[in-house]
Amino acid sequence: MLATRPSEDVRRFLSLRRSANKAMLGAPGPTPHQLDQILAAATRIPDHRRLSPWRFIVFEGDARAAFGDAAAKVHADEAEGVDESALQSTRQLMLRAPTIIAVVSSPKNDGKTPVWEQELSVGALGYNLLLAANAAGWGGVWLTEWVAFSDGINTLLGLAETERLAGFIYLGTPTANPQERARPAPSELIQRWSGH
């Protein structure tokens, strides 16, 4: 293992990272083998005490529509008076891309590692997943929406009481290039400690 791996190509790749538009991810998506490689790369992140405080739930094929139907029932139960168009949107959520990965924050109570540290590791995992997918030639976007904050969805997905959804990462073949958006100026966000 090398301590550093200087690469101008990687630096440029990172400086141009951009999420795909959720409406512009078509088939095909990664094969199971390709997805396994992407997820393995995603786990190469900071993980204090090697707790692996995260896990994945993968949606592919017919499972996407089945989840949408079940999620619409949860939506109707949780949102009093929700209209049919909103329920139809929920049914279509997972049909926007051929492959969707739910990233689950699954902190371990080891009595030593703060949950906050473990949640930061989950954030790094999601970002690394997007980078690995993009480097493998797939477009991707990380979304939360109401399904990431629903007790009913947590139950539907079998999450433990201590677990929560960090979001859903949609992967597929981009049907258009994403537009650039405004980025913050780093100089406005940097403070250098001077000791007083």
Results as ranks from 00 to 15, higher is better:
129 L>E: 06
75 H>G: 10
94 M>L: 11
4 T>R: 15
35 L>T: 05
2 L>P: 13
124 A>P: 06
152 G>T: 15
129 L>R: 10
53 P>N: 14
56 F>G: 15
100 I>V: 14
115 V>C: 08
57 I>L: 15
11 R>K: 12
75 H>Y: 15
101 I>Y: 08
118 Q>Y: 00
8 E>A: 08
184 P>V: 09
183 R>T: 05
135 A>F: 07
127 Y>I: 06
50 R>A: 15
49 R>L: 12
50 R>D: 15
174 P>M: 04
74 V>E: 01
65 A>Y: 14
180 E>T: 15
6 P>V: 05
162 T>W: 07
63 A>G: 12
111 G>L: 12
91 R>C: 09
144 T>L: 11
74 V>C: 01
175 T>L: 05
194 S>E: 01
120 L>A: 15
59 F>I: 11
91 R>N: 13
115 V>H: 08
134 N>W: 08
78 E>C: 02
140 G>E: 01
90 T>E: 03
131 L>F: 09
192 R>V: 03
154 N>T: 00
88 Q>S: 08
115 V>T: 13
91 R>W: 10
35 L>R: 05
73 K>D: 13
135 A>V: 06
63 A>H: 12
102 A>P: 13
51 L>A: 10
193 W>Q: 01
59 F>K: 14
82 V>R: 00
109 N>F: 04
35 L>N: 09
45 I>D: 02
63 A>T: 14
181 R>C: 10
84 E>V: 03
93 L>I: 12
